[in-house]
Computed example of a mutant assay.
Amino acid sequence: MDDATERDDPVIPETARMGRAALTVGDLDETVGFYRDAVGLTVRSRSETAATLGAGGTPVLELLADGDAPPRDRKQAGLFHTAFRVPSRGALGAALERIRERGALDGASDHYVSEALYCTDPEGNGVEVYADRSREEWPRADDGSVEIGTAPLDLAALAAGSDGAAEAPPGTDLGHVHLEVSSLDRARAFYADRLGLGVRTETRGASFLAAGDYHHHVGINTWNGRTDPAGGRGLAWFEFLLPDAGTVATARRRLSTTGVPVTDREDGFEASDPDGITVRFRAIPES
């Protein structure tokens, strides 16, 4: 690849996908129980200070206990919600049953591209569990952008189609993260201009961005008027999985040369967005 071609390619390639999200929490036991029993994730490993949860052998969530971390301030940027994507409507129906059993359902929406359930974990972190519609069904504007909307979701029909599973099935992953930022312009400049995600759709006070043709991997909004950098409990980091180690090295070099500070990690590197939210990059693990 010559230098000109590399400059034209996005830092995050179209084949990238989401990996894991990590949350800093005060009560590890209670939070693990929520994601296990309501969301349906399986506990893959557990210590006194951390837990890894996933589905079908794939880790999607890290919980990091820190009793000294203060609660997130109302002015601070950070997490709006993590969004766990299940592979079928039947699995979403089962998630509805589990969430209702805990009395945790906050809302539900038909977003045209997906059907989604919303709840809040014991630490106050927003959670979405959703199932995509087939891409052929996604409505698109004349310019090809995806049209994401919000309409009522028929919960009775969803529950009637439940597969009854107590756990999220294989194929469940972290579909996207939605962030509260202090400035849409600054956040778009980082995620779109620096990282190369495409702006898939925009609404009042929000933008939705993705690698490739997905409806969104990252949502950003200013709906609650956050003004301060991220901090305290809540989102510790989230990650993109890139195709291979060479792509990770190229992404690191390109971000560094454009003035974005990067920190090396054993399995990749990390950078911070304008609100201090940590974004990690590593290669897709070999199967």
Rank of each mutant, 00 (worst) to 15 (best):
Y35D: 10
I277A: 10
S162I: 14
W223R: 04
T201R: 04
R46I: 07
H216S: 00
A156M: 13
S162L: 02
F240S: 07
H178C: 02
H216C: 00
P59E: 15
E48P: 05
P229V: 07
L63K: 02
A21T: 04
W223P: 14
A51L: 13
H217C: 01
P13H: 10
T257K: 11
L158M: 08
G78N: 05
G149Y: 02
D142E: 15
G126E: 04
E286R: 02
A16K: 02
T257S: 13
F80M: 13
D66T: 13
E137G: 04
D228H: 05
Y191L: 08
A116S: 15
I220C: 09
N224S: 08
V146A: 03
G205R: 00
G54C: 12
T250Y: 08
S182L: 08
V181C: 05
R72C: 13
R282I: 03
H176G: 03
G56H: 00
P243D: 03
R252N: 14
R194E: 04
A21N: 07
E286P: 01
L255Q: 12
E123Q: 11
A77T: 08
V260E: 09
R186Y: 03
D8V: 06
E167R: 13
S45R: 01
A55V: 05
P13V: 15
A160Q: 15
P70Y: 12
R102D: 09
P152E: 04
S207T: 02
T222C: 06
E202K: 01
S88Y: 12
P261C: 09
A151S: 04
A160C: 10
A108H: 01
G54P: 10
E136G: 10
P13T: 10
E6Q: 14
G196M: 13
R133Q: 07
V279M: 11
T263R: 14
Y35R: 07
T58M: 08
G231S: 06
G56F: 00
E62M: 12
A55I: 11
D193I: 02
E286Y: 01
A206W: 09
R133F: 09
I12V: 09
S287D: 00
A94S: 13
D275C: 09
P87D: 07
